[in-house]
Design a protein around this nucleic acid. Sequence first.
DNA 1: ATCATTGCAAACACTTTGCATACGC
DNA 2: GCGTATGCAAAGTGTTTGCAATGAT
Lengths: 133, 133
Amino acid sequence: MNNENIVTVLKENKMRPSFIRVKIYTLLVESRIHPTVDEIYEQLSKEILTLSKTTVYNTLKLFIEKGIVKAINIEGNELRFEAQRGFHGHFKCRECGNIYDIPMNEKEITSVLEGFNIEDMQVLVSGICPDCE
Amino acid sequence: MNNENIVTVLKENKMRPSFIRVKIYTLLVESRIHPTVDEIYEQLSKEILTLSKTTVYNTLKLFIEKGIVKAINIEGNELRFEAQRGFHGHFKCRECGNIYDIPMNEKEITSVLEGFNIEDMQVLVSGICPDCE
DNA sequence: ATCATTGCAAACACTTTGCATACGC
DNA sequence: GCGTATGCAAAGTGTTTGCAATGAT
């Protein structure tokens, strides 16, 4: 997704495409690392020297409210973020720390939940990835 | 599971079945509420007036190391605990806060992960339950 | 000029740590 | 009496809040 598309997404969702918002959303769309707040902050503060962590928090909160970003709880107290896209699960390698997206059919899970109104779903798997075996 | 079984499980896993450990493990086995540290603390400190939250943390940490308890991350930063048993997912109702166990076949999820060494898996669904619709 | 965005500092909530005390065998 | 279990107080971590400063139109 190029810069113009990023701006378009923000505008479509009624957000002013400020420099920082474009940067944060671009990072989420282009990197596949499901970064934490700290990782986003470290990455962008190289370029935006006055960036504050509060702004990263505020911006992510806004993105989540607008529905273009999703928070994922890979582990304990480490909250991570990714741009919304089709349904998939996550695998975290205990050794290298990499997070892999897992293609997945949500029907297999939701079929059991008749009568429940499903709003969100997360599948988190952990263990050792093929590279670290 | 009666009191004697609880003691047996603790002993089998090389833990001294102290009063507090038996109480905490019993609560996890018998209640199905997937309590937070606070809920465990509130519940048990009625009876054990000198109980400290540190002890609840220590005990849960021990149980997790020994593999008889599992931590689950239902939402954001609220860590919950349950006694280990067969694989299942969780549904949390946004309205009433109840957490339901979802029967589930793990094979359907792991089949995609050939080459990965799977150690743990969590399925978390949220929305509105039939009672709150 | 006005309103939205950004950012500092402080508050907050949750969890862990270090060490002292108490308990069980 | 010795080693483990418990618990207080303090430190650590991640996140939110209040408000002031800055920026865009």
